[in-house]
Design a protein around this nucleic acid. Structure first.
Length: 751
DNA sequence: CAGCGGTTCATTTTT
DNA sequence: TGAACCGCTG
């Protein structure tokens, strides 16, 4: 008896091939995570490998968390000794553990996109470069590219030759690196390349980890970039037990430096590698699978595999032409409303996927009107909110006071009368003395041209920081958080503002403080440093999405790795999906479209039972209506797998679903043919959609899903209702928390 | 120095 | 359509 008996033969082979390099080509829905977790469980339980000698690397915190949990279920608490984490978190761990050997200050800050941008802008300013000549965005992109290619500023400069543009970027890249080191900060790219370089430089440290990690497992290998690839090579060089799992057809991060060659060339890098293909799909119906297979088959650059299933044929893929993006949104919402509730599906079973975040707007508006609950995955992070970032910035400065970029963020927040001019004077002074801004605060009376008032303000600020740094030594995390909010004047500032927005921000702060308490109570080693590190590496997708019964909205990228019974991929239009950029580029290089196609494949294979692909003939972009054309990907789906329908507004509020061919106005007919199709066998009468405007008017505004405003708590969405009339009680989800209110007493108004 | 109003600009995807 | 940025004024 082996736990591996629960696997199919291919899975078992993948899980039980313990020795040597192993490539697992795992198609969508083929049980990839299952193989990984069972492999680890077998290594521990049946081969007798010590848990701490296993390293498993993923791309997202979520994937890491899930894997850890599933392993725990199989092997018990000893699983906590296994190193499971994202590339970035593992690297931070190594940098901190080995900071002494590497000659680093372990209190380094981790810079996110915002910090990066702030840094770059300062550098552009210092070099007298107009942002119109070289945008921060473009510079960040070029620096990041260089880093992903493992080019340090020196090498980059050498390669730049005498191309003036490249020379300039080389100088700025050099300045950027200098600035980060001076601030004791790493950006996301640095975390990876720094480890690779340090391990190269310190063979004794490398050897320690090479020997320690007897088994290395890598998830989503198709998305690794060069530094990640090198790290895998380094760490697996001794035992050579490297198991990589991935799907070349799902490589969708090349734009960010992922190199699909890493997986395509694995067998060349490791000539003794064994390869296992997982091609049996346990997720989608045969028709969905056939449609997705047909699309991805148009790509040239792939290993080639064909997914199959023993499951039922299922429904045809619905292709829906809508005349506007708004109509498209309304159609999708209406379909979800009809398909869920009665019958096997709940709202949590439905997902709406789109190419760009901007597409979520009309969907959100329609969803709000309909009152159906929904969650957006990967919007703005909680930690990206200004007040949260400010508070965390205070904490960051307490840990790493030489971090000027972060200090600048808080020096005048709340307002202390410290303006650009004063700060600039301080900065110049600090630069001359090679001091950090923080250190320069000790010499305010020596700063030239600094006015008395400014000097006083800066001294006050310095005193606040000093006090907080002292407090850090004595207080635990939540206490310190409270102290920061109090002593910095942040709470007071929000309080004085006395607006609903400020109220909401104060609640967010409170939520963060509550979270710190939770963190402190639950973690074994709840240090401020560890807390900041965790938050820095967190993504919006990592935030706990409680609702199991809300519709999920997200980008196709965020959807990777997930599955839903009902999937709607919207905006299937040329120049949107594939994007204009990809279309443009494909004129020169036909391969340019392939990543978009893989993304399409990823989207389609998220669906378990029903897949709907929708497009609009006209769509709002930049505030004006533009004409669009159906995506080429639609034409790549065989017609016999499709059923097409049309959603046409007649320019009037009351809309009607049209059956059969579209009205005369259509120019050409690019959409694949097929007969009208509906999910449910609903009557034609049911097909006539109700005007949502009327619907909302009729129903009172206290229905579940409606948005209301509360005097104290601000805007919130009703998630639960009980009782009638004066006894009615509502649960309302406000920005910071869910509140139960009695309608009779709470003065609610529609929002 | 801070707040206001006008202008400009952009939309890919994110560990 | 909106956010972000700039320059002007109090």
């Amino acid at each position: 008896m082996s736990i591996l008996d629960a696997l199919n033969p291919a899975q078992r082979q993948a899980a039980a091939t313990y020795a040597g390099p192993l490539l697992v080509l795992a198609g969508a829905g083929s049980g990839k995570t299952r193989v990984l977790t069972y492999r680890i469980a077998a290594l521990v339980n049946e081969v007798g490998i010590a848990p701490w000698r296993i390293l498993a690397v993923t791309f997202t915190n979520k994937a890491a968390g899930e894997m850890r949990e599933r392993i725990e279920n199989l092997v018990g608490p000893t699983a906590s000794d296994i190193w499971v984490g994202t590339f970035h978190s593992i690297c931070v761990r190594l940098l901190r553990y080995e900071s002494e050997a590497f000659g680093l200050d372990a209190n380094f800050s981790i810079y996110d996109e915002d910090d990066r941008r702030a840094t770059v802008r300062r550098i552009l300013e210092a070099h007298n470069i107009d942002e119109r000549d070289l945008s921060p965005r473009s510079l960040i992109g070029q620096i990041s590219q260089a880093k992903n290619a493992m080019l340090d500023p020196l090498e980059f400069s050498r390669q730049a030759g005498d191309n003036p543009g490249r020379r300039q970027v080389a100088d700025l890249y050099t300045a950027y690196e200098t600035e980060l080191r001076r601030n004791n900060a790493f950006d996301f790219d640095d975390l990876l390349i720094e480890v690779v370089r340090q391990l190269d430089r310190h063979p004794e440290v490398l050897q320690k980890y090479q020997e320690r990690f007897e088994h290395l497992l890598v998830d989503e290998y198709q998305d690794t970039n060069k530094p990640q690839y090198l790290l895998c090579r380094q760490l697996s060089a001794h035992h050579r037990n490297i198991c990589v799992v991935g799907d070349d057809d799902q490589s969708i991060y090349q734009f960010r430096g992922a190199d699909i060659r890493n997986i395509l060339d694995f067998e060349r890098d490791y000539p003794d590698a064994q390869t296992v293909r997982l091609e049996q799909n346990y997720r989608s119906t045969a028709r969905i699978l056939a449609a997705a297979n047909a699309v991805i088959d148009h790509n040239q650059d792939r290993k080639g595999k064909k997914l199959w299933t023993e499951g039922p044929d299922g429904d045809p893929v619905a292709v829906v032409e809508c005349d506007t993006d708004r109509r498209e949104a309304r159609h999708i919402v209406e379909q979800i409303r009809r398909q869920t509730g009665v019958g096997p599906y709940g709202l949590g079973d439905a997902a709406i996927l789109y190419r760009t975040n901007a597409q979520s707007r009309p969907l959100e508006e329609e969803l709000q009107r309909s009152g159906l609950p929904y969650i957006i995955v990967g919007g703005i992070r909680f930690y990206d909110r200004k007040e949260i970032k400010d508070l965390l910035s205070y904490l960051r400065v307490l840990v790493n006071p030489v971090d000027d970029i972060t200090l600048r963020r808080i020096v005048n927040t709340p307002r202390r009368g410290i303006g650009d001019t004063s700060l600039e004077r301080l900065q110049i002074f600090a630069q001359e003395r090679s001091l950090s801004l923080y250190a320069a605060l000790d010499h305010l009376d020596e700063v030239p041209n600094l006015g008395g008032r400014a000097q006083k303000s800066l001294a006050d600020f310095a005193a606040i920081l000093k006090g907080l740094i002292a407090a850090k030594e004595e207080m635990n995390l939540p206490e310190l958080g409270n102290e920061v909010v109090a002593k910095s004047g942040y709470r007071q500032m929000l309080h004085d503002e006395n607006t609903p927005e400020a109220e909401a921000r104060e609640q967010n702060i409170d939520q963060l403080l509550a979270e710190m308490t939770e963190y402190f109570d639950e973690r074994e080693e709840p240090s401020l440093e560890a807390y900041l590190e965790e938050k820095s590496l967190m993504t919006s997708a990592d935030e706990k999405g409680e609702n199991g019964h809300a519709i999920t909205l997200m980008t196709l990228h965020s959807a990777k790795g997930l599955e839903f019974p009902l999937v709607f991929v919207c905006g299937m239009e040329e120049n949107l999906f594939p994007t204009a950029r990809a279309v443009e580029e494909s004129r020169i290089n036909p391969q340019a479209i392939e990543e978009e196609r893989r993304l399409c494949y990823v989207g389609m294979t998220r669906a378990r039972e029903r897949l709907s692909l929708t497009y609009a003939l006209r769509r709002y972009a930049y505030g004006s209506m533009i004409e669009t054309e159906p995506s080429r990907f639609l034409n790549e789906v065989p017609a016999d797998l499709i059923e097409t329908s049309y959603e046409i507004d007649r320019g009037f509020a009351r809309s009607r679903q049209r059956v059969g061919p579209p009205p005369a106005k259509r120019k050409k007919k690019p959409a694949p043919q097929g007969v009208h199709y509906e999910w449910d066998e609903g009557s034609q009468a049911a097909q006539t959609t109700t005007d949502f405007g009327d619907f909302v008017e009729q129903d009172d505004f206290l229905a579940v899903g409606q948005w209301v405003r509360h005097q104290q708590w601000g805007r919130g969405q009703i998630i639960e209702r009980e009782g009638h009339g004066e006894k009615m009680k509502l649960s309302i989800k406000f920005a910071a928390q869910v509140k139960r209110v009695a309608v009779a007493y709470a003065q609610l108004e529609p929002a």
